[in-house]
């Protein structure tokens, strides 16, 4: 480590800018665009308390007289105060989208984190020890895989709803959604990690560590784990897109986040309900944002997969 610390941040920067991954990133305009888009969406979303023109879910700031204003650019009825129009409650659509994106991102990032922790731990244990433990974990994974993520999430949500009151449910809804999505995504991490561990653990450098008597836990954390981060990172990125969609779907189906605290999915659902009356902007703009975000994240994930795969380089 001594050698590493000496080179410091500038050394790290140099290594990154010199690496093949960075090179492959730079030479793919599509990826650069996707990265910029992702970054912009994330930055705007997280800065929404500062950037948003309104605080759409504070009833004190709302006025019904502002209700159902169309977007400025398409109709003379529009107002510049509400560039993307308002909904029936007079909430600014742009601000709703900014806050909603933030919530969607928080939920999906947390869900991916839950899935990662669960999947990586189980995968490591499964791959390193093998035998009966491995068999049990992998059978559970098989069963889990036969249920689509949405179904798992619906199931968990249903169980939780049955157990607690509606009011309490709204309070803990975010945890339920995070847990449900996280639980339905762990399998791909566990499988990938298990596969990589089975390959890595027979490599001679792991055996060299065993010869000096290191414990299995130390070997896993120090040697095996860093060598499986590549594929895990790829899955995480691709999963993020999926998690955003799953959250949106759950919320759309009304089993996700409550309408008092709407995510992108909730916004689309709410807008959908009034779509018949011709107020399309309430649902289309959140939809477009969702599509753009998922597309950008997935493009990044695809690139990462190719960039980290030495065979495709």
């Amino acid at each position: 480590m001594a050698a590493a610390s000496r080179s410091g941040f500038s050394g790290w920067l140099h290594r990154v800018s010199d690496s093949d991954v960075w090179w492959s990133f730079k030479s793919s305009p599509m990826t650069v665009a996707a990265a910029v888009a992702t970054f912009l969406i994330i930055a705007v979303a997280f800065l929404s308390p500062v950037l948003a023109p309104h605080t759409p879910f504070d009833p004190a700031t709302l006025s019904l007289s502002d209700g159902l204003k169309p977007p400025v650019l398409v109709s003379p009825d529009g107002e510049w105060a509400f560039p993307l129009g308002t909904d029936d409650q007079g909430r600014d659509v742009l601000s709703s989208i900014m806050y909603g994106t933030r919530l969607s991102l928080i939920v999906s990032l947390a869900a991916v984190a839950v899935a990662m922790v669960l999947g990586i731990s189980l995968g490591l244990i499964s791959g390193y020890f093998g035998g009966a433990i491995d068999a049990v974990i992998m059978r559970v994974a098989d069963v889990q895989l036969t249920f689509p993520a949405i179904l798992v999430a619906l199931l968990i949500d249903g169980v939780v709803r049955g157990l607690i009151s509606v009011k309490r449910h709204d309070e803990i809804a975010i945890f339920v959604v995070v847990g449900a999505i996280g639980l339905s995504f762990w399998v791909s991490y566990a499988r990938t990690v298990r596969g990589s561990v089975m390959v890595e653990k027979n490599k001679e450098y792991v055996q060299a560590a065993r010869v000096i008597g290191l414990s299995p836990l130390l070997i896993m954390v120090r040697h095996v784990l860093p060598n499986v981060t590549g594929p895990v990172l790829v899955i995480a990125t691709l999963n993020l897109g999926l998690a955003i969609i799953t959250e949106a779907t759950l919320s759309f189906l009304g089993v996700g986040l409550p309408s008092t605290e709407p995510s992108l999915g909730t916004l689309i659902r709410l807008g959908n309900e009034v779509l018949q009356s011709g107020d399309w902007w309430i649902t289309v703009f959140p939809g477009v944002t969702l599509a753009a975000l998922v597309l950008a994240v997935n493009l990044l994930g695809d690139w990462l997969r190719d960039a980290l795969n030495p065979k495709l380089r």
Partner: peptide, 16 residues
């Protein structure tokens, strides 16, 4: 070990 490519952890510096 036999394989000089598999017997060193690729993510570690030689010092470590």
């Amino acid at each position: 070990f036999q394989d000089p490519f598999a017997s060193l952890n690729p993510r570690w510096r030689v010092f470590d």
